[in-house]
């Protein structure tokens, strides 16, 4: 039936493209999560009256975040070509897209992390200080657990932005559904391929949103 409705689809190519989209999204999401938490924590801790109040570090991190958030993603990929080549040994395929995906999404997520951390009750942080907690204890046992639902919702939003980014990266050679839709679909005027790719991407987005909402709800004991 699938072949009747979408006569031009090559199932093998299609599965490879879907797999590549998942691969890029998930690996980039893990990288974004780690780098974003790091950036968000640095922004939060070095801010005025923060635990590690430091104007210089705060300025540098904020500048990094703002600059990489300002560059449109398609240009960021081009800009990072030398860096990507150095790091991954290639600029093509799903692996070639990863550095740009992470560097494009992490500053965005970092801001969301900063906002989530600021929402943590200051009284609770103070209580931990009054108990004699180290800063590392405050980070790992107070700040991160207490902001976890917001960190997860933020990650969901970021994941969906990342899926969009992978499609864009696909258009310049990274593979995945974006690449399949553009090269095999659009350029050959096989619009059924563009349509099926759109449908699959929408389904992937819904799956991420559903999982994110579920986990955030489950964690929230407020």
């Amino acid at each position: 039936m699938l072949t009747d409705l979408f006569p031009n689809i090559n199932l093998e190519d299609f599965w490879v493209a879907t797999y590549e989209t998942f691969y890029m999204t998930i690996i980039a999401l893990i990288g974004t999560f780690i780098l974003g938490i790091l950036l968000g924590l640095l922004l939060y801790l070095t801010t005025k009256n923060g635990i590690w109040q430091n104007k210089f570090v705060h300025f540098v991190v904020a500048a990094f975040v703002n600059i990489f958030r300002a560059i449109p993603f398609i240009i960021l990929i081009l800009l990072l070509f030398p860096f990507t080549n150095f790091l991954m040994g290639t600029i093509r395929g799903p692996n070639g897209a990863l550095p740009a995906l992470i560097i494009g999404a992490a500053p965005f997520y970092g801001r969301l992390v900063e906002i989530a951390l600021r929402e943590v009750d200051k009284g609770v942080v103070e209580a931990a200080k009054a108990m004699g907690a180290k800063t590392s204890t405050i980070i790992f046992k107070v700040l991160l657990p207490e902001s976890m639902p917001a960190l997860i919702s933020g990650l969901t939003v970021t994941a969906i932005a990342l899926i969009g980014y992978t499609a864009m990266a696909g258009a310049i050679g990274a593979g995945g559904l974006g690449s399949y839709a553009y090269y095999s679909g659009f350029q050959r005027r096989d619009f059924d391929i563009v349509l099926i790719c759109s449908i699959i991407i929408v389904i992937i987005v819904f799956i991420f949103q559903f999982i994110g909402d579920y986990i955030a709800n489950k964690l929230d004991k407020r």
Partner: peptide, 14 residues
């Protein structure tokens, strides 16, 4: 030195 607070300041996640 123990301390208690007006708004309790408990960790809601625990």
């Amino acid at each position: 030195i123990g301390m208690i607070f007006q708004h309790f300041n408990l960790l809601w996640s625990r």
